[in-house]
Design a protein around this nucleic acid. Structure first.
Lengths: 138, 138
DNA sequence: ATGTTTGCAAAGGATTTGCAATAAA
DNA sequence: TTTATTGCAAATCCTTTGCAAACAT
């Protein structure tokens, strides 16, 4: 229970609550989960937790730099741990699967945008849509 | 008024209405506009047009392949003409500006994903977040 | 005339907010 | 005790849907 982020919270005048711990655990366990899905996961342990608490907690955790969110197509934003190695998301239009791949795949893109447009790419938020190997053959 | 898509519509049993023409004109004029913004634009000419008509029309026009939509961050989907040359979107986190750039910037990325992961990239739906030249210097 | 399309109002899903009660410090 | 946090309900925002009236063909 002596997790480092507990002190981080208190130092900023926030409080460590069971709800906040559970949300962080859920984000850790689920990877790329929507608020709704996180809520369901949290409620497996603590039934009473309200969806609005989930939203407020995710906002706080993101502010603290513990989690991040991405927009994957139509669906609500999905959250994942910030500490996870940075990755690029591949979203398959066929099966809907989300794959994480190394940011190095985007090196060429990043370099071109930098040189040609002076644009600094946020690689961690890069999402690529398309068709995965499985769905292309079927 | 003898636009080619009019026949296309009728051929499929749909009807050519003022609302549909206005929506297409608005999408043409605005580029990357949300349904809300398109509605406002349309209403400058025809006040009575309802937002639900905008949604239904955009859905129809997209089905016909005349317009496409993209998800740009938090905001509602934005629509643009399908006939516009394909492009990659650069979204600046600083000023919110959306830049269109040639899909060739993604060649490296596309090739790597193809070779390493067997993933077929949908370049037209690629959106890159980051900071534009202006916002980096300021 | 016939069947599509529209405007309106109501329903829906996701997210936010106000507030009194609860719990962390 | 003090004040941040929670649960609840209501409010908002965006989008969809049902339906009768209006319009394109």
């Amino acid at each position: 229970m002596a997790e480092p982020w507990h002190e981080e919270l208190r130092a900023r005048g926030y409080r460590v609550t069971p709800q906040r711990q559970l949300v962080l655990e859920a984000v850790t366990a689920l990877r790329h989960a929507t608020p709704e899905e996180i809520c369901t996961e949290v409620q497996r342990t603590a039934r009473g937790v309200n969806i609005s608490t989930i939203y407020r907690t995710l906002e706080l955790l993101e502010q603290l730099g513990l989690v991040k969110h991405t927009h994957l197509g139509h669906k609500p934003p999905t959250y994942h741990l910030a500490s996870e190695a940075d990755h690029v998301h591949l979203v398959c239009r066929g099966c809907g699967e989300v794959y994480d791949v190394t940011p190095t795949v985007a090196k060429g893109l990043v370099d071109v945008l930098e040189q040609e447009y002076g644009f600094e790419t946020d690689v961690q938020h890069l999402t690529v849509y398309g068709r995965c190997r499985n769905c292309r053959t079927t």
